[in-house]
Amino acid sequence: MKMNRRKFLESAGMLGTIAALPLSGFSMFEQPKYKMGLQLFTIHKDMTQAPLLTLKAVKEMGYADCETFGFDSEKCSFYGLKASEFKKILEDLDITASSGHYGFSSYLTKPQDELMRFVDRCIKGALDLDMKYITWPWIAPEQRTIDNFKLMANKLNVIGEQVKHAGLGFAYHHHDFEFIDHDGENGFDIILNETDSSLVKLQMDMYWVMHSSTLTPKELVDNQPGRYVMWHIKDMDKVTRDYTELGNGSIDYVEILPDPIKSGLEFYYLEQGGNFAYSPMKSAADDAAYFKKHLQRYL
């Protein structure tokens, strides 16, 4: 005899409990589970000096996924290691690298054929590591004009098509400068409105949203549901507004986290770009401990 879902819940005494849960957008039946990820920029110096020992320590902290930074396109290497060697370390430690930040900034104004050759090298590196996403992370200060944001939007579409053809996803990671007003325009709106959402996904940096945007992470997701496939999670010092360890700052993540399903979330990464209380590795460990205790239940 088949039992429908409601009768099952009633028989298990769970219906009243579920009815009492807050309407947060998260379901105990549909709640996704993601690997706890680390953006390796947090510990970049350690990674360049001793990648194997550093990743062993990262694994012990509880991280199971990572996002790379610092790809050498000429040597197809990560942290001084050939992509195949770095992949072997990841496999041995049972850590994945689902995304990588690649150095597109210097190609913003270069000829299209040079950009496409660089993208091909990035694709090779990403495929060697079984990545899911190639991410454009940054543009130089002198490039941050409205005309260049419009130029970049075009480049993002071109790259996105090339990357998609290779079977990978492509995303753009923002900072604060995209939100700066330029006589009624800003770079973030240009990126949102002038790129193809099927080719160019977005990596939301929660710190920079809370630091610089007039919108909240939830409002951004409401405006572009399904497009924020990756998140960066880090805290903001209560006084200086610089980076700080999770739990030491002003960002209430229980309050601001969007619904991951509505966001389209596939991967998230803890990150601290500087201002370490003791050392990058200690901050990475402290961030992991805080996240596991207070926030992982939501993801």
Rank of each mutant, 00 (worst) to 15 (best):
V163L: 07
D189L: 10
Q143C: 10
Y133P: 01
E185V: 08
G125M: 02
H173Y: 06
I159S: 09
D130K: 06
I89F: 06
A171I: 06
S99M: 07
S198N: 15
M206R: 01
D189S: 15
S106A: 15
W138N: 11
H173G: 08
N193F: 05
P141K: 14
L192A: 08
H211G: 02
W136M: 14
T145L: 10
H182R: 14
E161F: 08
W208A: 02
G125W: 00
S197H: 14
L156A: 15
S105M: 15
L156F: 07
D205P: 03
V119F: 01
E161C: 13
L129P: 00
H175L: 10
M152R: 09
S99W: 03
M116S: 12
V209W: 00
L129D: 01
W138Y: 15
K164F: 04
K88C: 09
F188V: 10
A153Y: 03
P217K: 00
S98N: 09
H165M: 15
G187D: 10
T109D: 14
F179T: 06
G100P: 04
D176W: 09
T214K: 14
T214A: 05
S99R: 04
H182K: 11
R121E: 08
A97Y: 00
D183V: 14
T96C: 11
N148S: 14
K110L: 12
K110W: 11
G226Q: 07
Y172D: 07
A166S: 07
W138Q: 11
A140F: 12
L115R: 04
M116R: 05
P225S: 11
G125I: 02
D120P: 05
D205S: 03
D120A: 08
L202K: 07
R117P: 02
Q162Y: 04
D94T: 09
K132A: 08
Q224I: 12
F188P: 01
I190Q: 11
H182T: 13
G167M: 05
I180Y: 13
S99K: 04
T109F: 14
P137A: 11
A166W: 02
D222E: 06
I159Y: 01
G167I: 09
I191K: 05
P217A: 01
S99L: 04
G226R: 03
K110T: 12
R144A: 09
G187M: 10
N186F: 15
D176T: 13
I190A: 12
V163H: 03
